[in-house]
Write a protein that binds this DNA or RNA. Sequence first.
DNA 1: TTGCAAAATGTTACCGGTAACATGAGGGCT
DNA 2: AGCCCTCATGTTACCGGTAACATTTTGCAA
Lengths: 348, 348
Amino acid sequence: MISEETRKPNISRVARLAGVSKMTVSRVINGNSAVAPDTRERVLQAVEQLRFRPNLLARSLAGSRTRILGLQFHEDAAPNPRFFYDILLGAQYEAHVQGYDLLFFSQPPSREDPRSAIRFDLVEGVICTGGTFNMNSIEFMEQERLPYVIVGRRDWKQFSPYFCAPDYVTGYQEATSYLLDMGHRRIAFCGGKAHFEADIDKREGYLRAFEAHGLAPDPTLILMDEPGRERASQTEAFLLEKRPTAVISHGDEVWNLVKSAARKGKFSIPGDLSVLCFGLSEGMQMLGASRGYAPLTRLEAPVFEMGRQSAKMLISWLDGEEMKQRGIFLPLDFIKGDSCVPPRSPQK
Amino acid sequence: MISEETRKPNISRVARLAGVSKMTVSRVINGNSAVAPDTRERVLQAVEQLRFRPNLLARSLAGSRTRILGLQFHEDAAPNPRFFYDILLGAQYEAHVQGYDLLFFSQPPSREDPRSAIRFDLVEGVICTGGTFNMNSIEFMEQERLPYVIVGRRDWKQFSPYFCAPDYVTGYQEATSYLLDMGHRRIAFCGGKAHFEADIDKREGYLRAFEAHGLAPDPTLILMDEPGRERASQTEAFLLEKRPTAVISHGDEVWNLVKSAARKGKFSIPGDLSVLCFGLSEGMQMLGASRGYAPLTRLEAPVFEMGRQSAKMLISWLDGEEMKQRGIFLPLDFIKGDSCVPPRSPQK
DNA sequence: TTGCAAAATGTTACCGGTAACATGAGGGCT
DNA sequence: AGCCCTCATGTTACCGGTAACATTTTGCAA
């Protein structure tokens, strides 16, 4: 029904037009084999004239490389689309530079569902992200011997040789030291979940900063959600009772509670309480309109970079490069705003 | 170097093991052709035993269908990752249901760059999103005769036969009517950019509501950014001067300015000023912690649904279905919160 | 039993490229 | 001139499936 004329040109038609064999055309378009200059010119003209583009499917089938990476993401585990988006952009950036593309998955593969399993013929490797991995995904990729990199966590390294995660320990140590150097001693830590790897690492950094300063942290100034006990909601009462001079808070919700406490307790930020936040969503990165958009001092995970590095790592693996490191820790971004000031009265 | 044994099984090996021809195996795995029950059983056993999965590349090459959709997105035009993310999830949802996958592009294709152009052999169609389209993208797809659907805007319909956009006019008319029915008459409209299609539609809806109520809107209560004149920043002064009893505000920034005005002018929300917001980011969807998280009354674009419907439309197109409508308008979500109450004193 | 259509299965060619090997033309050296 | 080597190009087979057609088998009525 479609005539030879209008159909997409293939390598044979180019060859016929240029008066050479398919193979010569293949050599010209791949450019890694010697072709006489005038022949090359003839072929290129034919390519131009027919607007020929080699078919990726055929090429991959013959050469067994698709130059496509899978990006797997669990939508359940995405309270923060910005996280996913930046991972995606970062991975995309590196992939494009190296001539790869990204195929997106939101569901874990399974052998039962041929629809999802089938796609894995297309990808040469997978970048896995999203908070809670499904063991199925990992198992699937192990069985398929499909290279994969895990982004954002390090506790799966017993499975994947490669991961790319933020260095929470060092980041939090640095931030806590910043407050200690300012003269703060009563620094509260309002963290996330006490049984989550990332949150444990954050607390570890907090503790190490005290240690490095030769100081003993006050354990009663640490508030975290424990399994079955949501303690974040107690943040307000906690701050009003403990009266720290600084607080390291975790995410939007806790930051809102800190603000609320400030209002109730009639103390001011940062005058009476310095605040250092982690991972705020964009709209929350200011103290509030009433304070003229003074920027918060905060820590951020280098999400774009995580995406980029994980793609880079995966591609290196695919290219068969010898990898020195099997995992990468990336430093947190520490953004100094106006929400941390030295305490009113110097502390012991 | 890799023995036949460990290599990925192909259809021939399955055929050999089952003692049938390749074609019979193909028939079994595709299931749309008659195969004797016992033969089918033998083949399925062989498939199981070898853990065989058909190779998508080969299948597509032979059948010329890849079941992959492109998702094109301009990162420049993404101030709101949530928008992109929901489009993605929606498109992904529909695609998976119908056995398609999504390949992600962030850069517009170009003929000059074979790397990007080449990928279009892989996709059967493209979903285009992101605020500002690049004319190059559209031209490229027109030339390649590649089916594409535009999401979120309707003003490109002179190019693409298909688009999927929110029905701003009706949504805003409904919301404005809601306020009018409550008794409000002095309803301010703090909109977006006076030269953007979406913002023009929103104003149109606002105006139509008055018309439908047989009322004349007060044009001095409309504030929009005009080209070269950022008027959103004047929101505060505007409200304090005009003293409307209700305001329809546009996005985070304007909502912040409304709150700021309330504080300065010492009037309360919603008591003195009812507020109806459009498109707030997640963190902003409450009046503020101080008010105990009272939810705002607001309008939201049905972003997930937009993604879903655009994928659906594209797939219908690919399947050659006769399409009744070339474009879809989706209703806005109108979420009734606590931020709109009848005015203190009834108005004429 | 024969005949014949329908059902089951096999064969061949092809999708559009690339790898591996084969061939042929030209150039330099003895 | 004869030889060998290199460079340019062609040939063949194959990647792993499917479409279209060919062939064999089966079931059932006459």
